[in-house]
Simulated scan of single mutants.
Amino acid sequence: MPHRPLTVLYIDDDVALGRLVQRILARKGYAVEHVGDAEAGLARIAEGGIDAVILDHDLGTSSGLEVLARLAGSEGAPPVVYVTASSELAIAVQALKAGAVDYVVKTIGEDFEVLLTAALEQSVERARLLRAKEEAEREVRDARDRAIVLLAEVNHRVANSLALVSSLVRMQAASVQDAGARAALAETQARITAIGNLHRSLYTSDDVRTVDLAAYLETLVRELGHSMSAAGRTPDIRFEAVPILMKTDKAVSIGMIVTELVTNAIKYAYPEGTGEIRVSLAREPDGATLLVVADDGVGWSGQGPATGTGLGGKIVGAMARSLGTSIDYARQAQGTRVTIRIVEDEPAA
């Protein structure tokens, strides 16, 4: 409770009853102001400083329901206890639907005093709790907004740092004469770019919990092509996808898998020249995400798994395990088709 006396506005055209209510509530420590009509009551409420309103149903030329209707559109309006001389339940129901927090039927004797005081105390306490709840919710929203801004800034800084590292690796690759070393550095740059692009997607996203997988992979594949072109290869990469929201941690793993599979196809699928590499992303009827990387190159012999024994193969295997899935290398007459099926534990919102 505030240290000052609570100020109650009593709106009723009955002057005698107004004085009675003032005496009743004064004994309870309330400061009571009395006005005799709706317009005067609304004007006093608009001035501020009213903690609660006692509103009579019959105001002579108007109804208390009209006052409730006008208060309904006012932000921060005080709680209203509705008073009526009628015992008809319909009036009470109308008043409560219109925004009153409680109602009291006028009677002669101590019952009216007890009921009015109890209703007033409950309405004031309810208003206090509601204000406290709104304030707590506002503080939570403000804290969440600050956290989102800070997280976006962190992702921004990480993306910029990784872009700098990627540029340093590219510069190092340009100064290396050995073709094998240049290729290894290009692959390293592609892996760094895959993670950097994810952080770039996060700081431009409204929800850092999820990533637009199609947009992320499109950027990743495009930059991967540029990176490998700088290393002396000219891949023709086709990308086709539908928009799919994916949890951030899973998007990282998928990005790393795509990086390794596309890099592998660029290196080995077309030893005599260049050809097409296709990356597609689709949603299956059961909600699973289907990722396919395919080419029309020399393919693989079919002897043993096609995941390889080098670093790339180990990365693909580790990422697949983190996704709870496996890599399917399909045998084809020409080329290689790699399929990854990802099922989300919980749908990304």
Rank of each mutant, 00 (worst) to 15 (best):
Pro5Asn: 07
Thr7Tyr: 00
Val8Ile: 14
Tyr10Gly: 01
Asp12Leu: 02
Arg19Met: 12
Leu20Ala: 10
Val21Cys: 09
Ile24Phe: 14
Arg27Ser: 13
Arg27Ala: 15
Arg27Val: 09
Lys28Gly: 07
Lys28Val: 02
Ala31Ile: 00
Gly41Pro: 07
Gly41Gln: 08
Leu42Arg: 07
Arg44Thr: 13
Ala46Asp: 12
Glu47Gly: 05
Gly48Leu: 11
Ile50Thr: 15
Asp56Val: 07
Asp58Thr: 06
Leu59Ala: 06
Ser63Thr: 15
Glu66Gln: 15
Val67Glu: 06
Leu68Pro: 06
Gly73Met: 03
Glu75Pro: 10
Glu75Tyr: 03
Gly76Leu: 10
Gly76Phe: 07
Ala77Val: 10
Pro79Asn: 09
Glu88Leu: 12
Ile91Thr: 14
Ala95Thr: 08
Leu96Gln: 05
Lys97Trp: 01
Lys97Pro: 00
Val101His: 04
Val101Asn: 00
Tyr103Ile: 06
Tyr103Ala: 04
Val104Ile: 08
Asp111Lys: 14
Asp111Gly: 03
Glu113Tyr: 01
Leu115Phe: 07
Ala118Leu: 14
Ser123Val: 02
Ser123Arg: 04
Arg126Met: 09
Arg128Ser: 13
Leu130Asn: 10
Ala136Asn: 08
Glu137Lys: 12
Glu139Asn: 05
Asp145Phe: 05
Asp145Thr: 14
Asp145Val: 09
Leu151Asp: 14
Ala152Met: 09
Val154Pro: 00
Asn155Phe: 07
Asn155Val: 00
Val158Met: 12
Val158Arg: 09
Ser161Cys: 01
Leu162Phe: 01
Leu164Val: 11
Leu168Ala: 15
Ala173Lys: 05
Ala174Asp: 14
Gln177Gly: 09
Gln177Cys: 00
Asp178Leu: 11
Ala179Trp: 02
Gly180Thr: 11
Ala181Asp: 12
Arg182Tyr: 03
Arg182Pro: 03
Ala183His: 08
Leu185Pro: 10
Leu185Trp: 06
Leu185Met: 13
Ala186Gln: 04
Thr188Gly: 15
Gln189His: 09
Ile195Ala: 14
Asn197Thr: 09
Thr204Ser: 11
Arg209Phe: 00
Val211Ala: 01
Val211His: 01
Leu213Thr: 02
Ala214Val: 02
Leu217Trp: 03
Glu218Asp: 13
Glu218Asn: 13
Thr219His: 12
Val221Gly: 00
Arg222Cys: 02
Glu223Pro: 02
His226Ile: 05
Pro235Gly: 08
Arg238Lys: 12
Arg238Cys: 06
Phe239Glu: 03
Ala241Lys: 03
Ile244Ser: 01
Met246Ile: 05
Lys247Trp: 09
Ile254Ala: 11
Ile254Gln: 02
Thr259Asn: 14
Glu260Ile: 01
Leu261Ile: 01
Leu261Asn: 03
Thr263Tyr: 07
Asn264Thr: 12
Ala265Gln: 06
Tyr268Glu: 04
Ala269Met: 05
Ala269Val: 06
Thr274His: 09
Arg283Gly: 01
Arg283Pro: 00
Glu284Ala: 15
Glu284Trp: 00
Val293Tyr: 04
Ala294Gly: 04
Val298Asn: 04
Gly299Pro: 10
Gly299Trp: 08
Trp300Ser: 11
Ser301Leu: 12
Gly304His: 09
Thr307Trp: 08
Thr309Ile: 11
Leu311Ala: 13
Gly312Cys: 04
Gly313Ala: 07
Ile315Asp: 06
Thr325Arg: 05
Thr325Asp: 04
Arg331Lys: 13
Gln332Asp: 07
Ala333Leu: 10
Arg337Ser: 10
Arg341Phe: 02
Arg341Gly: 02
Asp345Glu: 15
Glu346Pro: 00
Pro347Tyr: 01
